[in-house]
């Protein structure tokens, strides 16, 4: 049974597009990266899974149950961290967390203190006095408090300093090894690359690609950097060469196809330097957006 199963899910807000015909599955124990620029439909998808909004057509199932009919039951085992967190301003952190915990009908006190200590969260401060990053920490503790089986993270690292980001990632990994499934939406590819096993790429409301993060990096492109005298745009006019750029006597390009063709060409040149490397996800990603 898939933890998340989205089938032809479509959401329009009046006439404006949310997502169109989105389908994907996430299996138990996976960390699934959901990548796309702002406005692509990442948040829409997550809000549909939480039934904060209702689908125009198509369906979504979480834990094998339909989100529109079994919302409360499903949400019992979901932890949600939105990109921007907003809480009742007048409350103290501890009161908010206790209020949050009271919905789950189990004692979360121990975990509450454990998580707050780990995230270095001051429990006695008022929400309205917290900085953005600190509110985010409240969000993290609040989302993990009830030991959910599925974490929906919507651009979770925005506002966290690098140190906290690392702690947060470690925390997510730890949860994951305990069997928690993670759905991680982001527009920062580096972090997805660090954390996720599989990714879906969404663009203008539609899924463009779903693949294993390794295959996405390996099968597609090589990034070639050549430094030699007398190079120009036309030097590597081979089929499969794209994105040619000349910079300070160095030629950068992407190559997809039989690597021997490039090597043959290289061996005919008098090189001062050459590297052939895996492109970063960021660079691959740019291709999908051109």
């Amino acid at each position: 049974m898939s933890i998340i199963e989205v089938t032809n899910l479509t959401k329009y807000y009046g006439k404006s597009r949310g997502i169109v015909d989105v389908s994907f599955k996430e299996e138990e124990g996976e960390i699934f990266g959901f990548i796309g620029p702002n406005g692509a439909g990442k948040s829409t998808t997550i809000r549909l899974l939480l039934s904060l909004i209702h689908p125009t057509s198509g369906s979504a199932r979480v834990f094998g149950k339909d989100v529109t009919t079994h919302g409360p039951e499903i949400r019992r085992d979901i932890g949600y961290l939105p990109s921007e967190v907003f809480y009742y301003e007048g409350m103290k952190v501890i009161d908010l967390l206790k209020y949050s915990a009271s919905f789950y009908g189990k004692d979360c006190t121990e975990r509450l203190h454990e998580l707050s200590e780990y995230m270095e969260l001051e429990l006695n401060r008022r929400i309205s006095d917290l900085s953005y990053g600190n509110k985010k920490k409240v969000g993290i503790v609040q989302g993990l408090l009830h030991s959910p089986k599925l974490l929906l993270l919507d651009e979770p690292t925005a506002g966290l300093d690098p140190l906290m980001q690392r702690k947060f990632f470690d925390l997510i990994r730890k949860e994951n090894t305990r069997g928690v499934t993670v759905f991680f939406s982001s527009h920062i590819l580096g972090e997805v690359q660090r954390l996720c096993t599989r990714v879906g790429i969404i663009r203008e409301g539609r899924i463009v690609e779903i693949s294993d993060i390794r295959t996405l990096q390996q099968d597609n492109y090589k990034k070639v950097n050549v430094t030699a005298a007398g190079l120009d745009q036309a030097t590597f006019a081979l089929p499969g060469v794209t994105n040619v750029q000349v910079e300070d006597g160095t030629l950068h390009f992407f190559f997809k196809g039989d690597i021997n063709a490039v090597l043959k060409k290289l061996s005919s040149l008098k090189l001062s330097d050459v590297t052939i490397e895996e492109p970063t996800l960021e660079e691959i990603f740019m291709h999908y957006y051109e």
């Binding site: 939480l50 409360p72 949600y80 789950y104």
Partner: peptide, 17 residues
């Protein structure tokens, strides 16, 4: 308007409740 609806409605309670 204060955007706390996300917090409340992502809890395991139905809209009717």
């Amino acid at each position: 308007s204060e955007l706390t609806a996300d917090f409340l409605l992502s809890k395991p309670v139905s809209r009717l409740q």
